[in-house]
Design a protein around this nucleic acid. Structure first.
Lengths: 328, 328
DNA sequence: TTGTATGCGTTATCAG
DNA sequence: CTGATAACGCATACAA
């Protein structure tokens, strides 16, 4: 047990009666004579030595930290993403430097710039700033947003998810569909949820309406929209696809308040796969994002030492799961 | 914009025509001649210089990282805690190094040891390992668990919360109370939730039962307990205090399945203050932990440079909030 | 193979 | 008040 002083390689070298270089080799698993190996190991054990990662980072110009930039952690989707990324990193002996932006453009950019002085080994970010610039030289992955040709974008298969939702609703008997969304007005991978939905509706010849509001809108505007379509206690739509589970949750609450029965009168499908308390029941019927795999893939991309040509965009398969707001 | 090479203080010094020391002073806001100040600032701007935090950490033997150790992020209480801690740190220009343990004793200890080589400025942890040893010399705060006299324990006022829950149920007309808990068998600040509950019941002369299971137990054991107390479609208790919102959520789901109406037949109060999607409606009536303040207090303690005597234990006030599982 | 010496980018100590 | 220089702990090129 070292209590006061800082144990360095020098101390270990002295204790083991070998040179600094030899200790370094042993620490880094570079072959040395068995004899020395043992002596150094013993000294390390005895003194309780451990490497100073900052000295190492300084020397190597590279650290074991990966910067993860997310809007927040109270949104359960982001929380789960952070959770999975952290585990995936830990499995490879990397640590997560987590930064929260609340989607503020300036903060997003500031944190990215910070990454340079942090000498992080990579960046995984989920941002909204359209003009975000990422320093070249640092491996980066963006979740759900295309940041340009240098940055691989990892996302769920939003298009297929949208299609899947529409098909499921139609298959469940719905004949008047609606798509609802509140989100960034900037182009985004998640826009494809709508595209897939529209495609499936069109293909099936089912009438539909899309209600897309941008970020600044509050849910009360959705309420107005829904209210305007409630006549004689009945909603004009019998199937709603919401761009997120949060939205689905809010729509569900509003409709229930207005005595419209879900899933009897109207079926609702969300997107994300959020569960109560992270691991309990689904909040609603939903298109489940493969969060764990998205995290693993992102981490692998960041940490793949080879500068081999990495794909521009990776879309992971989604799945429908019934969570009580659809008949099946 | 620097693209390829690494800009160091030396570069800035050369550009500004001053010495290294002067640049360092300017960077660290140590007064220098106006003239030099300006020249250095200009050079910094021009070259896009930023400090290398590892070199700084190495030299200062201290970094701007704070290690945060939590079981996971899918539990919304932990997620919110991490969220608040991260913001509180960011407000003081510190970064969060987040590590997840899933309550594994060994991993908890391993991460704590890691903190030494990380030269972190502090540790905020929520752990379960009864034998956890924290290196002296690193400011540390433990959430909800007493780790010994050196480590300040920050928690909500669990005792008052327990009392509050019992009083509220009684005030709402309940006459047969139950306390339910699944948790660590090791002594823990959260045990006081029961103590306060018991005290309030005793004081009021209201009969009560405590069902306390330890970690290894699954919810099905609680189901068995509840089932055993359902007779002719009625539950023996008309008020239940659950040690966590998660438990309250599970109990609520089970009772609802068994056609016992909440809050009409039985009222339920949880503990934590978890909201759907982090910021929507409460999951249940609950004793709300002041998570934001707990985070802020923890961060302040960690970062208070003075080694002044810090209190052994800090308990922050809680509040009752109705979330639909109580009459009022 | 192993040991020695140098430099990574800072801050801090001294002379000037 | 400023400039040169020595550490901080490590990895590595080079010498032995």
């Amino acid at each position: 047990m070292n209590e006061n002083r800082k144990i360095t390689m020098k101390d270990v070298a002295r204790e083991a009666g070998v040179s600094l270089g030899t200790v370094s080799k042993v620490i880094n698993n570079i072959p040395v004579q068995q004899e020395y190996q043992l002596r150094v190991d013993a000294a390390v054990e005895k003194l309780g030595y451990h490497v100073n990662r900052y000295a190492k980072a300084l020397r190597m110009n590279k650290s074991s930290f990966v910067q993860v930039i997310l809007p927040n952690l109270h949104n359960p989707f982001f929380a789960k993403l952070a959770d999975c990324i952290c585990r995936a990193l830990a499995a490879r002996s990397y640590e997560m430097l987590l930064m929260l932006t609340e989607s503020d453009y300036d903060r997003e950019q500031a944190y990215i710039y910070l990454s340079e002085e942090q000498m992080v080994s990579g960046i995984i970010c989920l941002t909204y700033n359209p003009d975000l610039v990422i320093p070249s030289g640092i491996p980066a992955v963006s979740i759900d947003r295309n940041l340009g040709p240098d940055i691989t974008c990892v996302s769920s298969d939003n298009y297929a998810g949208g299609e899947m939702a529409a098909k499921k609703l139609i298959e469940n008997g719905c004949r008047h569909l609606a798509f609802i969304r509140i989100g960034s007005s900037l182009p985004n991978e998640t826009d494809k949820r709508k595209d897939g939905f529209v495609r499936a509706c069109t293909d099936a010849g089912i009438p539909f309406h899309c209600e897309c509001l941008n970020d600044s809108a509050s849910f009360s505007e959705i309420e107005s929209f829904l209210s305007a379509h409630i006549q004689h206690g009945k909603l004009d739509y019998d199937g709603i696809f919401c761009a997120t589970d949060l939205l689905a949750y809010q729509v569900l609450a509003f409709l229930t308040e207005n005595r419209i029965r879900v899933p009897k009168d109207v079926q609702i499908i969300g997107y994300d796969g959020v569960r109560h308390f992270g691991d309990q029941k689904l909040v609603c019927s939903t298109i489940v994002q493969p969060v764990e795999e998205m995290a693993r893939v992102s981490v692998n991309l960041i940490l793949s030492d080879s500068s081999q040509r990495i794909p521009y965009s990776i879309q992971l398969p989604v799945q429908f799961a019934s969570g009580g707001t659809t008949l099946f």
